[in-house]
Amino acid sequence: MPAFIAETRPRAHGAGLDLYEYDRVTGALGSLRDWPAAFGAVGRRYAAEAGIAAAQGRTVTAGGAYRSAARWFHAAGLMPHPDRAGAARLAAEADEAMRQSLALLEPEAARVEGEGFAGWLRRPAESGGPVVLIVPGMDSSKEEFHALADALLARGIAVLAIDGPGQGVLAATSAPEPDYHRVVGRALDALAAHDGLDLGRTAVVGLSLGGYYAAMAAAHEPRLRAAVAVSGPYRLDWADLVPFVTETLGQRCGGPEAARAFADRLDLTGLAPTITLPLLVVEGGEDRIPGVTNATVLAEHAPNAELLLVPHGNHLLGTALPDWLPATADWLAARLAR
């Protein structure tokens, strides 16, 4: 238990959880089986506080509390817990809390959904600019990467953060999709119904397993101008993967055999040379997961790839946010400039 808590702490920091509160909650756990209930209880407390603030007209406080609730509900689902119905409820609570936060703080935000995806479109102050899709990973969701979305919005870029097959609110009804470029294509199609976006300037950012998905989209989707893979895998070797990964994939894919078949398909070896658009590969030097070949190899074989390697960064670089996040947002803004 202490190892999982310590490994997840930088990720909680990157997702915007207060680390002192994280330490209090995890310090009181008797078992990792208690993780979803403990984190979910914090999310419900924030949601209740948000409801009270909203009723009193304290809109900013209410919106912030709803966003905190969304973060905690998301974090509650990080454990590969056997109660999958409970995990689905937590994902739905995260989605609803984010909806209420956006309704109060960003009423121009819009739900965008279609076959195999659901997400929120958030807009900067000025319309007519580019848009970036944010794609989560194996056990992640659209409620995790607030700091990245806010950094892009501050640079005049609209953001569509989505859950895809096997992710977030869709995890209970779908399995992970290795051909994720089809999901990205359908999301781009759906954006055509929303005014004030320059769909000639679109990009995708994927994090963890989402980094692999972003590379797939970069190879297959001609409408993209640029792509970023953060802590993404280049290849998976099932026999060497740690139990956390195999258990999580097993639950989300529908069993160990389906999970292994999914993992066996994740290999960018043949695809990397075909990725010709600008690609930024962001890696942490301390990101070492057995069974995972990191995407630094992708940076070597994709013709227009650049590598941003942060030596002290871990997986998802929650230990090094200032060393990659502003630079990545600037890189995207430059590639999507008129």
Rank of each mutant, 00 (worst) to 15 (best):
R84N: 11
E177F: 07
T173L: 09
L160C: 06
D179V: 13
G166A: 12
P136Y: 01
A172R: 09
A118F: 12
A151N: 08
G137I: 04
T173E: 15
K142S: 05
G168L: 02
Y66W: 11
L152Q: 12
R123M: 03
R67L: 13
A94Y: 07
G164H: 06
A92W: 07
A85E: 15
S141M: 03
G119T: 03
R123Y: 00
A87H: 09
L105R: 08
R89C: 14
K142R: 14
P82M: 01
G129H: 10
A85D: 15
L78N: 15
W120D: 07
I162C: 01
H146V: 15
V132A: 07
R99C: 06
M79Y: 15
V169E: 10
T173D: 14
H146T: 15
G86T: 03
I134M: 06
A91G: 09
P82S: 02
L148W: 11
P165I: 13
V131S: 05
R111N: 00
V131F: 00
G114D: 01
P176I: 09
L90Y: 02
G86V: 01
E177N: 14
R155Y: 10
H81S: 13
M79R: 13
W72L: 04
S140Q: 11
P80N: 04
L160P: 06
L152V: 05
G119V: 02
V169Q: 02
P176T: 15
A88Q: 05
E113T: 02
R155F: 10
S141N: 01
A76K: 08
P176A: 12
V112E: 01
S140T: 12
A75W: 09
D150G: 04
G156N: 13
G116Q: 12
G77F: 00
D95E: 14
A109G: 00
A118W: 13
P82E: 02
L170A: 00
P130C: 05
R71F: 14
D150A: 13
R84A: 10
V169P: 02
A76N: 08
